[in-house]
């Protein structure tokens, strides 16, 4: 049991909880979003006490050296004096378009701020107001689109996704963070086979990554398995089919895990279908995005199928609630 002192308020952190869980349990409304060390929304600075190395590992060295860390992935090993910080960069951008991509799904286009350099597949924090932000992945590719493109699924009673669907409109000004995350294509072994598995809007970053690999002249086979329970929740099918027709080494397999899939879709969960067709992933590079349970299981199964840990890139779309 360690004591956390949060700007003068002392709370006790139990054995199995993170610092963030402890703060929230004690009614401290500390800002957070992804809860898995991706978005940096929860960042705090330690003024006293030693921070486990793990808890600051995703941060830039300059921040780490100043004692910044992420309480959502911190299991304390010392008493800690911490204070909230607001150092996340916020950029004002205009919404340049919103259109439906399917059931409960919209595409949001944002003006790309000056000097905003990103890798397709990274994500941004999108602020609804001063206190609430959520992560959305970048489906765009700077070579193909000037704007930033997001795919946003409406969740039932979702505070930010609902607001985007119901209230946001073209011309509005909103705030976003700079690009975050390290799940993107790097030019390395151009012949390496790529396996991409996504559920739901997990397709957004994968769409960016695939086009980036093709843009860089990747020659190894590229396999995309996109899954949903209902065929109505798959999207971008035409674009992906067109891409498949254009590039012989890109293979697109839409998967439906619910019933009545017919022969336009593979029957089963995307992860199962992918591993059934490719039981051996030794030497492959693997990208996993979407449902956190899928991502967790897929990481393990891809590893057991032979993929090296460092060749597995993943974004779990955890929700904050």
């Amino acid at each position: 049991m360690y004591e956390i002192n949060y700007s003068g308020r002392a709370v006790a952190c139990t054995e199995n909880e993170t610092v963030l869980e402890c703060l929230l349990r004690n009614g401290i409304e500390h800002p957070h979003s992804c809860r898995n060390g991706s978005c940096q929304t929860c960042m705090v600075q330690a003024v006293a006490g030693s921070v486990p190395q793990q808890a600051s590992a995703p941060l830039k060295p300059s921040l780490r050296e100043q004692g910044y860390f992420l309480p959502c992935i911190c299991h304390p090993q010392d008493n800690l004096d911490i204070r909230p910080v607001a150092i996340m960069e916020r950029l004002q951008v205009a919404v340049t378009g919103i259109k439906s991509l399917g059931r409960n799904l919209v595409q949001v286009k944002l003006q790309r701020p000056e000097g905003f350099a990103y890798r397709p597949g990274q994500f941004i924090n999108l602020f609804r107001d001063d206190n609430i932000s959520r992560c959305y992945s970048l489906a765009s590719h700077p070579h193909h689109e000037d704007e930033l493109v997001l795919h946003v699924r409406r969740l039932p009673h979702g505070r930010v996704s609902g607001w985007i669907h119901d209230e946001l409109s073209q011309g509005d000004k909103i705030e976003v963070s700079g690009p975050l995350g390290d799940s993107f294509y790097v030019v390395d072994d151009q012949q390496q086979p790529l396996m991409l598995i996504g559920t739901g809007t997990g397709l957004a970053p994968l769409y960016g990554i695939i086009r980036d690999a093709l843009h860089h002249g990747h020659t190894g086979p590229i396999h995309l398995y996109h899954g949903a329970r209902d065929a109505a929740d798959l999207y971008l099918g035409e674009e992906l089919q067109r891409l498949q027709a254009e590039y012989g080494h890109f293979h697109y397999v839409p998967c439906v895990s619910g019933q009545a899939s017919g022969d336009r879709y593979a029957a089963g969960r995307a992860l199962d279908v992918a591993l059934q067709r490719h039981p051996q992933l030794k030497g492959w590079r693997v990208f996993l995005c979407g449902n956190p349970e899928m991502v967790k299981l897929a990481r393990k199964r891809a590893f057991m199928a032979g993929a090296a840990m460092q060749d597995i890139y993943a974004d779990a779309f955890t929700v904050s609630a």
């Binding site: 793990q54 967790k296 990481r299 393990k300 590893f303 057991m304 090296a308 840990m309």
Partner: peptide
């Protein structure tokens, strides 16, 4: 050795339960 060892441990039924519940990235470290 990490990948080789960890893959063995996860596929060894005598002990894999001890490692299963925990987050894989943290485990690898």
């Amino acid at each position: 050795a990490v990948d080789v060892f960890y893959r063995k441990v996860l596929s060894d039924e005598r002990i894999s339960d001890f490692f299963d519940a925990v987050d894989m990235e943290r485990q690898a470290a």
